[in-house]
Design a protein around this nucleic acid. Sequence first.
RNA 1: GGAGGGAUGGCAGAGUGGUCGAAUGCGGCGGUCUUGAAAACCGUUGAGGCGCAAGUCUCCGGGGGUUCGAAUCCCUCUCCCUCCGCCA
Length: 425
Amino acid sequence: MLDIQRLREFPDSVKQGMLAKGESDPSVVDKAIEADESWRHAVAELDSKRAEANKQAKEIGQLMAQGKKEEAEAMIAKTGEAKEALKSLEEGISSLKEARDNLLLRIPNVPHESVPVGKTPEDNQPVHHHGDADTDPWRKPHWEIVEEHGWIDFKRGVKVTGAGFPFYVGPIAKLQRALIQYFLDTAADAGFTEIQPPFVVNEDSARGTGQIPDKEDMMYVVPRDEFFAIPTAEVPVTNFHRDEVLSTAELPIKYCAYTPCWRREAGSYGKEVRGLNRLHQFDKVELVYMVKPSDSYEALEELRSYVESLIEALGLSYRTLLMCTADMGFTQSKKYDMEVWSPGQQRWLEVSSCSNFEDFQARRMMIRAKDDDGSIELVHTLNGSGLALPRIVAAIVEQYQQPNGDILVPSVLQSYMRTDSLTAS
RNA sequence: GGAGGGAUGGCAGAGUGGUCGAAUGCGGCGGUCUUGAAAACCGUUGAGGCGCAAGUCUCCGGGGGUUCGAAUCCCUCUCCCUCCGCCA
């Protein structure tokens, strides 16, 4: 959610940002400004009416205290119509405010000036490359390898739960556990505080990070208890500080959290969802920052290079893209995607997405920080995956496969795995 | 799951219909004293909305109601505590 003040002062830049993001109708900005205008007028009117009523009530109280009962009764008799007026004003105001906020919620975050303006994924800017995107014809897609070995059981997953809920068996189960531990250990060394959040959240939290009202179809729901299965650790971890005033001195706050993630992914099909490409349940270590507004772009670069170092340590070929305006989400002001190379599929797979939200999330969640001088301002929030497991597993299986069918274990994982290769037994 | 008791400012804790945005203590900040510190003393100290400002409105767990007037009365929800039951 953007600051209404910003809309009032710089409506054109907000509209430009919307157009750049590919929104077709920037008139919502004018509508929001108008709605705000009428809300403020109504509030002013209500406030002065209330001031009057408060004054009368006070006078009545004084008369009663002085024992001037008849005078008080006379005043009370006159309060009737003022009361009616207040009631209708109040009703009007809550619907005006709701209208304003609904409009405001439809306005996306404005892209940062450093974000390339674009219309398609081709306009995303590659900013970093590491390793080869090779084309060796003998390399198989990961799903062939893991099914041959019985390391991932997609069929039984379908039987027990449904498509997109595979079983990981033996070496791959172990590999995933090793990755989680490696990611958490590395994050701890880099100064992140580890958090184990709840895996289901209530409605307020889902609203806080913006999953509802817009994207509720992405989440699995526990109907009886009105919980939502988290689609990412971002939801519980960012909501950790919802409605809080932090101290500026404790910023930056850096959290890492491992959680499973559940996504309904309605409408996905074909090669997009083959193997580990897109699952309904997957594991991820998420990184969340809360920083001073002045530091957020520096923090984004730090987050980006941290995630890059993770992928590099795994010895995987990958690239980093600076996402163009059209390929950014609703809430982001700047975003980098990291994509690993899948030699078996001859395509790039997104494994991390590092974003700065500026104060867009913080405003909706009311996460603020108080400075030594007593001033309070919204924090800036950022997050990034560090990393999402399935596609990393896919890339390891494909990039580390040997002509004889063995999969070598990346050196940083060997101590966790207690082996240097996954072999067909 | 059953019975009872609670929820007030950073914390503790008063307040059962009017002058209460709220006593008091602790903590925080500023000052006096001191070579410095502690102690003592004095002052100050919640958040948010609207407004150029003066000012004004809202907030005592959330929502709704009664009343001219609600922290205070009523309804409801949530959470916490105590006892019983169940339980990895």
